[in-house]
Design a protein around this nucleic acid. Structure first.
Lengths: 348, 348
DNA sequence: TTTAGCACTCAAAGAGTTAGAGTGCTAAAT
DNA sequence: ATTTAGCACTCTAACTCTTTGAGTGCTAAA
């Protein structure tokens, strides 16, 4: 495995990414940085195929990269094109500044990625692990009907309506509000557990049995809180990718199962996962490129794209890297309190 | 246009729905309930073609129904197969009972329809036209940070966080809460307008300029409220329908524009619309079958399917009818006030 | 009015051909 | 010991030609 072979592998991957067609020896030999004949390249390509980096769709066709080929290319071979100052300032413009609310920052990043890469953008909105409950409210809204509201330090707002057996009088409501305020305020989202709520149900029932639905409601809300929020935007772009199976894409759009976990288990730095290699998001021939951003010194979420395996890694990876860095920088502002911007809940 | 011709038309449509192939005179003549020769049928078919109910893909092929052919079949000719008791209880099982939350009921209905018909299911979640604002709250949650909460009589809960320039003191908060309570409580969702909020901004600003973000927030929430909630599930099924143009299906999945309006303008009872005939959802050769369900005596939403024009109307229509009836029944409980069940809002 | 018979039409499927891109191998050149 | 030119070979994609058979419309008899 000499350096010329690696160079040829890189060239094949580059060409394949550029054209989408299997790449032949002749095409490679014509490239500027390759100075050997087609025959030599043919020999090397045969060797690369032997090693499992390339494959042929059929005998008389050119070569395309295998998974390992892509992997090697991404890890070692490609040389990412550094962002020009214009590109950087374009991204800066799309992203927003220090005063842009965090959620919007993430949304903007997603929009920028969709726009620039023409792929679907994936963002996770803050890993909730580090946030604490900052407010709990119980609001009477109708006959035996109460809306409970849970707000966390990182800005999540969850609400839920609960119907009780009886209406609460002022004193009872007061009692309950105090009790949960006492028990939940300042508790970190990670600490919340079903056992904890079970204890609360017990304690509250001692005072008044019919309060338990409210606690159960809180318990459900807390489960929602613990779920990472994942947004995929621009997923329609994937439908116009002919190398992706439309069926699989639509299924993915409808239920983005598993992706969240997949992102959770990601390390820091740029990560590339191939759809066909994971069972969590199984769009064949697709590729997920993500990186984590930080808030202060804590991982706060990830952001990246899903596209065909044949995406322009060279170009896209620097974009994602720049965005995560910038976001990390923007989020690590002076303010330590919540920056909330926009939230909705619908229910019938 | 004698009754034999109608019988033949019905038979052609039935056969075409069953097989998906153009139907020839011979195939019809073999059917049990047809006792004339192929030649006779040929003559009648030619006549039906003349009348615009049938057409030939090409000279030497059988006949397929035209739009008018389908229309006549659906309106007059087909005889829907009544649901067996097993089918009914199967549906009941999939749907849920009196204690199933409304939102889940609708979701279940959609899931059942996708499962049974192998088509995409369309459901709208409560036509908001009839609901009124039942509660408005402003909750301080952090430094200059307030969460506003809007609850309607049909159970929608919307919330949003707003950051103000200054913190409000108790008196100011009191004033604002009273003011909006006064102005919004009991107002029907339909009446809410931007002008109305503009006036409120003006009035409130007279008291304290920096309150206006809160009013703007309310305005945004009210816009969300006015949007009908439309869900299309199982749309991947449409991609495996070869009579539908994949491209058009994909476009439809991307933006389900117009469908909402189309459903809005539907009358009561089963409605069948052909994709190619409407410009709002323009999947050629597709068919939309919907019916409205009611809550108490008000229309509360619609539910149905989108499939190829060649769907088994005979079988599917009774299913949709049964589901809407059952849902209407389940939703028209004793309670007249809100039944809210589950609601979340997430935000950072 | 209905039916049998028959000539006619046309799409779909299969067979055969061609063109071209790309390969692997061999033998000569460096 | 590599590298290269040359060449025979392979395989797909596109095209044409032929065949097949389902289905028709028309005519004349029942």
């Amino acid at each position: 495995m000499n350096s010329r072979k690696l160079k040829i592998l890189a060239a094949v991957v580059d060409e394949y990414i550029r054209t989408g067609e299997p790449v032949g020896s002749k095409a490679i030999s014509k490239l500027d940085n390759i100075n050997v004949s087609a025959a030599t390249i043919r020999n090397d390509m045969a060797a690369l195929e032997q090693l499992g980096y390339l494959e042929q769709p059929h005998t008389s066709a050119g070569r395309i990269p295998t998974f390992s080929g892509y992997r090697l290319y991404i890890d070692e071979l490609m040389n990412p094109s550094a962002l020009s100052d214009e590109e950087k300032s374009r991204l800066d413009g799309m992203l927003g500044g220090k005063d842009t609310p965090e959620e919007l920052l993430i949304q903007n990043a997603a929009a920028a990625l969709t726009e620039i890469t023409q792929c679907a953008a994936v963002v996770t909105n803050s890993v909730p692990r580090f946030s604490v409950i900052s407010k709990v409210e119980v609001i009477p809204t109708g006959k035996r009907l109460y809306v409970i509201l849970l707000i966390t330090s990182n800005g999540s707002i969850k609400n839920k309506a609960c119907r009780l057996e009886f209406d609460l009088n002022h004193e009872q409501l007061e009692f309950f509000t105090h009790y949960i305020e006492e028990n939940l305020s300042g508790v970190s989202v990670e600490e919340l557990s079903e056992e904890m709520f079970d204890k609360m149900v017990a304690a509250v029932s001692a005072y008044m049995v019919s309060l338990s639905p409210l606690v159960m409601g809180l318990c459900e809300l807390s489960e929602d809180l613990r779920q990472q929020e994942l947004t995929v935007s621009g997923s329609e772009k994937l439908l116009s990718c002919d190398e992706l199976d439309k069926m699989e894409v639509v299924k993915f759009i409808e239920h983005k199962n598993g992706l969240s976990d997949l992102l959770e288990e990601t390390f820091s730095g740029i990560q590339v996962k191939f759809g066909s290699e994971t069972n969590s998001f199984a769009i064949g021939n697709s590729s997920l490129i993500v990186s984590k951003y930080r808030k202060g010194n804590k991982e706060a979420g990830s952001l990246g794209i899903i596209g065909p395996m044949r995406v322009d890694y060279k170009k896209i990876i620097p974009y994602i890297e720049y965005l995560t860095q910038k976001i990390s920088y923007l989020m690590s502002g002076d303010d330590e309190d919540i920056i909330i911007t926009d939230t909705n809940a619908e229910n019938d």
